[in-house]
């Protein structure tokens, strides 16, 4: 049997998948196994495939992805905690020919930035919100988030979220789906190859719908925070399937009328 060498494998005709050139060639600041990195990659693959690098302006949040601008090879603005939708509103209104998106965590989008989120959605601003829901404040060391599940432990609910005391997790995605200004609201994940492909399709649709002035597209990505959840990456993905998905079920919540 012929031996396959490294040189045989890396021949251009054998290339089936490569890193998108729009992801800056540097080490990401995310913990190994974290969904943020995969989400970045899907986002930039979509921007590359659509050929819209020069027409896209992104807005980074405060959260683990605060440094997203270091990794995405496009023009990016870094927003104050929770304010990304306000920035994006102005960007899109002042430059309607651009593709505009925000990338936000659950604390950023559904706690401190709830007001900006809901009003941008309700006004039907024609940009895309990418919402990374990991049920925790990753960046600041694993505190309770608005999406922390009942009973789930975090550093500020060390005995588990007691909804009597700490209130209920907020299903903000279902909430924004009820607003007339949103055109496309979907919940995805990036923890398996199949889900990654679905997320990518969702992101592409989101950019297309909002660019076509149908309104705001809202793509939630339920994601793991293996560090904050104090699990291995594999355990965290399993835990996510067993606990997060029943509460935050995957799939489209709202699609444009014509679909």
């Amino acid at each position: 049997m012929a031996v396959i060498t490294r040189e045989d494998i890396i021949k251009p005709e054998n290339l089936v998948y490569k890193r998108t050139s729009l992801l800056v060639d540097c080490a990401l600041s995310y913990c190994p196994g974290c969904g943020h990195g995969t989400a970045h990659r899907m986002l930039m693959e979509v921007i590359e495939e659509m050929g819209i690098q020069s027409k896209t302006i992104g807005v980074a949040p405060v959260g683990c992805s605060v440094l997203a601008y270091e990794f995405l090879d496009i023009d990016v603005q870094q927003a104050a905690h929770g304010r990304a939708p306000a920035l994006a509103t102005a960007i899109k209104r002042l430059m309607p020919e651009k593709y505009v998106f925000t990338y936000q965590g659950d604390g950023d989008l559904a706690a401190i930035g709830t007001c900006e989120t809901i009003h941008a959605c309700n006004r039907g601003e024609n940009f895309v919100i990418i919402f990374i829901n990991n049920g925790i404040y990753g960046m600041t060391g694993g505190q309770m988030a608005p999406t922390t599940l009942p009973g789930m432990k975090a550093s500020t609910c060390p005995y588990g979220r007691d909804t009597e005391i700490m209130g209920n997790p907020l299903k903000i995605t279902e909430l924004v789906a009820t607003l007339p200004g949103t055109c496309y609201v979907t919940r995805q994940s990036v923890h398996t190859p199949g889900n990654v492909r679905k997320t990518k399709r969702a992101l592409r649709k989101a950019f297309e719908y909002s660019y076509a002035k149908k309104g705001l597209s809202f793509v939630e990505i339920v994601s793991n925070c293996n560090s904050g959840w104090k699990m291995t990456p594999v355990q965290s993905n399993k835990w996510m399937e067993e606990n997060m998905f029943p509460f935050f079920p995957l799939g489209d919540i709202k699609v444009p009328a014509a679909e």
């Binding site: 603005q77 927003a79 306000a86 920035l87 509103t89 102005a90 960007i91 209104r93 900006e116 009003h119």
Partner: peptide
């Protein structure tokens, strides 16, 4: 644009000024 709050309004200025 009539923003939803002064917080949003100044951040809209931030977004526009950044362009």
């Amino acid at each position: 644009l009539q923003a939803e709050s002064e917080v949003a309004a100044i951040n809209m200025v931030y977004g526009g000024a950044s362009c």
